[in-house]
Amino acid sequence: MSNLLLITKIDIKESFRSKWFLLYLLIFAGLIAVFFVTGVVDSRVAGFSGLTRMLLLFIQICIIILPIFILITTVRSISSDREAGALEYLLSFPVSLKEYYFGKALGRAFTVLLPIVLALIFSVIISIIKGVSVTWDLFFYYTGLLVVLGFVFLSFGFLISSSIKSGEFGLGVAFLFWLFLLAFLDLALIGLMMQSAINENIIYSIAIINPLQVFRIAAMSMFDPNLAVIGPAAYFILDSFGKVSFILYSLIYPIILGSFCLYFGYYLFSKRDLV
């Protein structure tokens, strides 16, 4: 356990010294600052105002930038150590593969989730200072959504990093994987629905396996309980889950998927050549 925490501490220190972490922190803190400076919290759109309005915009932006940012910063976490010779050096000490792998994962989880949580806390503090109402249940729900989304894509990144020795090739795979989840999967399902006689419920079931799609629909459900914005798919989701069950699904499913990918990545890491 002490070795795991030691690897975690080393990874956190390395991340804090890197330029990507500073950029990552500035992006999310800057987004919150821009929202307040431009008066987003004082505007009202479709009945949403205050911190609720700002969270709506913040969530929509995070759907795009958060997954790819986490992927590109974690996919090289193991491969970079392998290429630099640090992996062989660390494992020459009495450190097990499990301690190294999960220590790296824990350290990277801390560094990728910290800016998100700090940005949300910063938004609440500024809202209270400005006298803007804070919807606490919505705030905690969206914080939970962003944390589980970060966790599942961190797990994807470690799975790719464990499978591929070349860091540059890993970046390409991560980028294509992000594009597949973000756009290609949706376009493929729409085309499949238009050109085939496959039952639409099967297509909807495939769609909600996509963690990005789950995150997107879960974010919408708090502002649009009937999910009218997503059309006929709303009937499938509401009939199959119900609002409360889908909220639980949106939090639990990414954790289960991420845990599986993280452990499968460890299995591949422990079975492949380390150098």
Rank of each mutant, 00 (worst) to 15 (best):
I65N: 05
L57V: 00
D224R: 11
L171R: 01
P115A: 13
V132F: 14
F48L: 07
L91D: 06
I256Q: 03
L114N: 08
D81W: 03
A234T: 11
G50T: 03
L56V: 00
A86L: 06
F21M: 13
V112D: 14
A197F: 09
S205K: 08
G50D: 04
F140L: 11
V275N: 08
I78S: 00
I198A: 10
I160M: 07
D224C: 12
L23D: 06
A105E: 09
N3S: 15
L51M: 07
T143V: 10
L146W: 10
L238K: 13
G30N: 13
V75L: 01
L248I: 15
L23N: 08
I203A: 12
A46V: 07
S43A: 13
I247T: 11
A174F: 00
I129M: 11
T143E: 04
L189W: 04
A183H: 00
T8I: 10
G167F: 00
A29C: 14
I203C: 10
V244E: 15
L56R: 08
Y141C: 02
S166W: 13
V134G: 04
L159M: 05
L87Q: 04
P225T: 14
L114A: 14
G144V: 02
L87H: 03
L145P: 06
G167M: 02
A188Q: 12
M1Q: 06
F177N: 05
F69S: 11
L181M: 04
I198N: 09
S221D: 10
L185K: 09
S15C: 12
D137I: 04
A218I: 06
D239R: 06
A188V: 15
L56Y: 09
V45T: 08
L22C: 12
P211G: 11
G107L: 03
Y89S: 06
Y89P: 01
T8P: 08
S205D: 05
L251W: 15
Y204M: 05
P225N: 15
S162H: 00
F153P: 00
F58N: 01
M193W: 01
I116K: 12
L51P: 04
Q195K: 09
Y89K: 05
F28M: 14
I203G: 08
I252D: 14
Y100H: 13
N226I: 13
L55N: 01
L91R: 06
P232Y: 13
F140P: 03
A218H: 07
K13M: 14
A29S: 15
A84W: 05
L71S: 03
R272A: 10
I27K: 06
G167N: 02
